[in-house]
Write a protein that binds this DNA or RNA. Structure first.
Lengths: 196, 196
DNA sequence: CGTCTCCTTGAGTTAACTCAACGTACGTGG
DNA sequence: CCACGTACGTTGAGTTAACTCAAGGAGACG
């Protein structure tokens, strides 16, 4: 379980290219899959110096057996991860770079908000451009240019790892963020949290 | 549950582009997610005239409560779906069109094999090029060209919906392919570039 | 104060796209 | 049985989004 800092699950293609297939933020449990899958097919790596907690799989399995309702909760959590995956596929497969970038920022901001890590629409996202590129299927250079475009269009402001989503509420319907809405709005509903 | 024919779960971006985020073949259960997720965030659509069976969610939930081991099996099944998702993200995000195409064919062939739907390495894959494009994040035109290239390089032969993987058997033993693994283990094969 | 990692910018290249036209198979209704 | 419509597949030509390469900053750190 993540106590602090983002973690990504990564894979490599035969050609040695890296893909980050999912991100986890503070408070989330990355490897719930491993509970009932014998083979691990990806690597988890911290994207910045982080604090993580470990839980023994056999202990968790014992808990699941004794308390079916907890098992169901864990199951549901992995189902949500699946829903996020499917949105991620859509993002990488069919959105162009600019919207794709906006989308992942929306998702991260939303999820950080859900764990109370956001103040005044400012999120700490200590992820390098290179890692963002690997998450989005883009080159570092292009990630950089898309972020510039987001700034230029007045959608975000940044200082270091801090990302400020400008006009979050109002720009959502009108601007680039709109395309991102369905995804994390769904995620929102799934997690049972209140949006905005 | 699918009795016959492929089904895809699809999503649309704000610009109206379609992405098929996952495919299911005969014998698989597409909407296991729906069991414990209240909101459905994608559409399931048959990609060819198919036969499907329906199971009531409340019935399944009752079964899960009475038989925890079945619940665990279902959970594991959704975890495998998750693993396939993550491979799909990698495929769409970081592989180029040719390899991407080869990869999805491998996955389909592997999964069809797992349900006994393959004879002599010939698989029935009745999916239009347009749908393949939506699954891979490619245009119809490019899908067509990549298939031609696969044929030209002697990797596949086709006739109608039938796809014959030409060097499947010979390359399999060398690359650590293991019979009887769950479907997502196709990753193993592909990471070793078995097919190519 | 050099080294390292990350970020930025410019310039040229290319993989994949779009558009548009034509081919082919199949079913349907006259 | 044929004309027609529809859906899918194929091909060529021109375009573009994103990539690669290369080189120069900017901050962190021993």
């Amino acid at each position: 379980m993540l106590i602090d800092g983002p973690v990504g699950s990564t894979k490599y293609t035969g050609e040695g290219k890296r893909q980050i297939t999912s991100l986890f933020v503070t408070g989330e449990i990355p490897d719930l899959q491993g509970l009932y899958l014998s083979v691990m097919d990806c690597t988890f790596s911290t994207l910045t110096p982080s604090r993580v907690g470990f839980m023994r799989h056999d202990t968790l399995r014992a808990i699941c057996e004794q308390h079916p309702s907890i098992a169901t909760a864990f199951w549901q959590s992995t189902l949500i991860d699946g829903a996020i995956y499917s949105e991620w596929v859509t993002n990488v497969g069919r959105r162009e770079a600019f919207t794709r970038m906006a989308h992942i920022l929306c998702e991260l901001i939303y999820r950080l908000r859900a764990v109370g890590r956001i103040e005044d629409h400012v999120a700490e996202i200590p992820i390098t451009k290179a890692a963002l590129g690997d998450a989005l299927g883009l080159s570092t250079v292009h990630v950089n240019r898309m972020l510039q475009e987001l700034r230029r269009k007045g959608l975000i402001a940044t200082s270091g790892p801090r990302v400020h989503a400008l006009n979050w509420a109002s720009s959502r319907p009108r601007r680039g963020f709109r395309e991102g809405l369905p995804a994390w709005a769904v995620t929102e509903v799934l997690r049972g949290k209140t949006f905005l």
